[in-house]
Structures are given as structure tokens and as C-alpha cells.
Design a protein around this nucleic acid. Structure first.
Lengths: 239, 239
DNA sequence: CCAACTATTTGCGCTGGCTCAAATTGGAGG
DNA sequence: CCTCCAATTTGAGCCAGCGCAAATAGTTGG
């Protein structure tokens, strides 16, 4: 963790991290302490924040950009756990007291994060229980997301899962454009396949079919949802 | 929550819940307060502790018995999130501040739990941050379990998933017997199917094939792992 | 503008595992 | 011992989606 102490951008950062869900309700003196003890980290698209199995040293909050949390099996098969955007936490291991990172986090766009050592995080949580309670809430949401994903993987066909996944991504980081809602970061067919639990071939075929029907519009690492309602119909249709 | 205040079994209960991971490191006066404010709940096999969508009122710790946490989709398809045994927490919603339960918890054996209202839980966490931090650790473990399960569902074939699931269940609640390690609670083919993400037919066929080879031995709602090492080989074989 | 890559598309054949159906077994209660 | 019911087994057929392979289309660096 490098400390780029360039006095001029104090308050913007303070504003940004203090508004995240993790630090809601934290008293001002704690925020000042956090501000003073924070490290900064800038990543270019493709850079790795930390890798699966790395020793846990810090907790990060995303200030700007987009990152991907993934997990790899011993046979090299990879899955994407989720994408992270501004305000979200990367490096949960430091919150839950795990000594190694269970997954790898990679920037998919140029990103800016701030972070604190595990010791500081621990200290803050012991002194300001509200932070630990906020962390519980956040982790609870993620746990619930994973439950839903397990249910989808267990019970739904590929087409519906792709639909749900795209809708979720659009919700998290959709950008309105003339043609529809665009997923606002580079997302390849392979990436989508690793989120959905299928192959890039099947994703490609499905998107092609949808493009035919005008539901989506896609290019290299780009997906635009032109008719989100049609996608909802596909994702939630009875049968 | 009914309070069955029958003075005689004070200390046994105190011992039991105080030893759970959730309350590790909690000072004695907090334990006394928890003891005084706890409610008890006894369930017969098949009884429901709470249902998906119910308003969150309490947090429970399993003292004895075994319960199943499940989730149902709107189309009626059900999946089993996990089984809970002594020392484990049921009703995470009260820890993470969710106002409804995301799943249903049912006793699969006669069970005994103690519980506290959400308000008391909140109060304890605010006053004794160590409890919130312990809860984070617990939830982190469950989150990690779910990540692994998503990975298995995404990348592994049914036979291997059944293998992994049985090994995990044996680890959580296996009982040594003359014939091998027995899963110590009633587990039907359908239950296993709902944990693994397949149909009871496929589970039945797979178990039959394994029984043929002497790897397992099973009866109605019973599974005994006779050759766990062979199961490990199936679950972890390269390919 | 060319070369080298990477991402994507698409065809083809195969099969794991699902669906549907029916028979069988094992307990629980009377 | 008999009845009823839930759990289990097993057969047969089918198909969604995977694996393999080859062609195509953007992108990046030189």
C-alpha cells in the first residue's frame, strides 16, 4: 500500500469514503482517524489488487472505477464472484478475520481505491461497533446474493440465468444511452459465461439470438440492453 | 418466543451458548445478561422455526438437534442452503439487520434452541463489539462456503457435486459406525438433490452405482460412507 | 498498412442428466 | 397382519448445452 500524501485532495476523499455504507454513522473523530491512516491505490485496467491465497493485509473501499472478484479452482476453471463499483468493499477477508484472500480482485477499468491495514480495521471495529454492524449488513447482502445465485444455478436454464445476470449488472452499473441501458464496463462473452456458469459459446449464441430480436445490441466486450422489459419477461417467464 | 423459566437448567444452557463461536470472548456480565434475556424453543422433527418472508424477530443458537435452512423460488422450486447443528446460528437476518427472513428453517430432528430478540442482539453488539466481530467471522465463513458451492455448480458434474456434498455433510455431522461414517440425520434422496442442484432420480442412480462398488451403504433417508477415500477420489479426480 | 492477437460467431455431433412413467420397497398406524 | 403413504428404484427417450473445430472480425503495436 503506497501513501500518496498529496494534501490537496483531502476533503474529496473524506467525503467519498465517509458516505459509503460501511462508515455510515461513524463519528467525525473516527472519520478523521480513518482519513489519516488511509492508504491510496490506483490501478489501471487489468491490474491486480490482490490474488487468491495472498496474505490478507488490507481492506479497500472503491472510490472510482470497476473491479472483478473471481475465484479459481485447482483445475484452473475460473468463476466470477461479482463486480465491484464505487462505494463497495474489496478484500472482505480483512473484515471477517480470514488470513488469506479467498479470491482474486482485478481492475477492469482504471480504478482508485483507499485502504487500511487489517490491524486498523480491527481497531476501528472494536472502538466503533457501528462499523462492525455496518459490515455485517453489507456481508449479509452479499450472502443473500450468493444464495440467490445458487438457487438460479440449481433450478434455472442457461438462457434465464444470462437474462438475470445482465439485468443485475445493468442495475449495478447500467448507463442510459440512446440505444438502451449499457453495461458500463468491458464485459466479454467469456466474463459473462463465468458469471452465469456456462461456456462463452452458449453466451454468444444466446446474445446473437437476442440481438436478432432487437432485445440487446452488443459489440466486443460491450452489451446494451435495448428492451429490458423483454429481458425481464425471459428471465421471469413461468414454466 | 416462549420463556420456559425452569430454574434447574440454568448452568448447562449457560455453558452451551457461552461456548459457541458467536460469544467467544464476551465478558461474564454480558453472558449473564444474555442468559437472563434468552428465550427457549423446542422443536420436534418436522417443525418449522420460521418461514421465508416472515418478519425477523429473533436470533437463535442451536443447542441440540439438527435443522435445515432452505429457500424457495416463486415457482415452488426449493433448494437447501445448509444444515445447522449444535453451536450454529439460525436466523442470520437478525444479525445483519434484514427485516424478513430470506429462507425457511425446519427441524429435521428434535431440536432445542435458545434465542434473543433482534433488539437485544443489536444492543449486545453495540455494547460488546466482539460479538459483532465474531458474527462477521461466522458470516464470512458461510459466505465463503457459498462461493465454493457456486463454483462447484458452475464447473463440476453432478457425480462430483454429490461426492463433495456427502463429504461435507459427513464432516459436519458424521457419526462413526461399524459400517463407516453415517450422516447423522434423516437425509432423503430429494434432500440431497436439493443441496446438489439435481433431481432425486439422478441422486438415486448415483448412490445405487456407488453402493454396487461398496463405497456407500444407504437406506431410507440414511447414507453411510463406507469408503470415504474412494469418495474423495471421485470428488477430486482430475479431468 | 501489416502482423499478431484476442474476441466472437457458427456449424456439428455427442451425451449427461432431465422428464415422464411405472414398479417396488419400507414404515407407521390401525 | 393389513393398509396407506412416502421414499426409492429403474427403464426409456429426448434435448439443452457442451466440446471441438474452423472461420471471421475487431484491436493494438510496429
Amino acid at each position: 500500500m503506497q501513501h500518496e500524501v498529496g494534501g490537496m485532495d483531502y476533503s474529496p476523499d473524506l467525503d467519498l469514503f465517509a458516505r459509503t455504507e460501511l462508515f455510515q454513522g461513524t463519528p467525525p473523530e473516527a472519520l478523521r482517524f480513518l482519513q489519516a491512516s488511509a492508504g491510496r491505490r490506483r490501478l489501471a485496467a487489468g491490474d491486480i489488487l490482490f490474488q487468491q491465497g495472498d496474505r490478507t493485509t488490507s481492506l479497500f473501499v472503491v472510490i472510482a472505477g470497476r473491479l472483478r472478484a473471481s475465484q479459481m479452482a485447482q483445475d484452473g476453471q475460473q468463476i466470477i464472484i461479482r463486480y465491484l463499483g464505487p462505494g463497495e468493499v474489496a478484500g472482505y477477508a480483512a473484515l471477517v478475520g480470514s488470513d488469506t484472500h479467498p479470491g482474486t480482485v482485478t481492475a477492469v477499468d482504471d480504478s482508485h481505491l483507499i485502504g487500511w491495514t487489517s490491524a486498523i480495521v480491527r481497531q476501528i471495529m472494536e472502538r466503533y461497533p457501528v462499523v462492525a454492524i455496518n459490515a455485517l449488513t453489507l456481508l449479509g447482502q452479499r450472502y443473500h446474493e450468493m444464495q440467490i445465485r445458487v438457487r438460479e444455478l440449481s433450478t434455472e436454464r442457461v438462457e434465464r440465468r444470462i437474462g438475470h445476470t445482465l439485468l443485475r449488472l445493468a442495475h449495478q452499473s447500467g448507463r442510459r444511452t440512446a440505444r438502451g441501458i449499457e453495461i458500463a464496463f468491458p464485459l466479454s462473452r467469456r466474463d459473462l459465461a463465468e458469471m452465469v456458469g456456462t461456456t462463452l459459446h452458449t453466451v454468444s449464441r444466446t446474445l446473437s439470438a437476442w440481438e436478432e430480436r432487437g432485445i440487446v445490441s452488443c459489440g466486443r466486450c460491450r452489451v446494451v440492453l435495448c428492451k429490458p422489459h423483454a429481458l425481464v419477461a425471459i428471465a421471469d417467464e413461468e414454466e
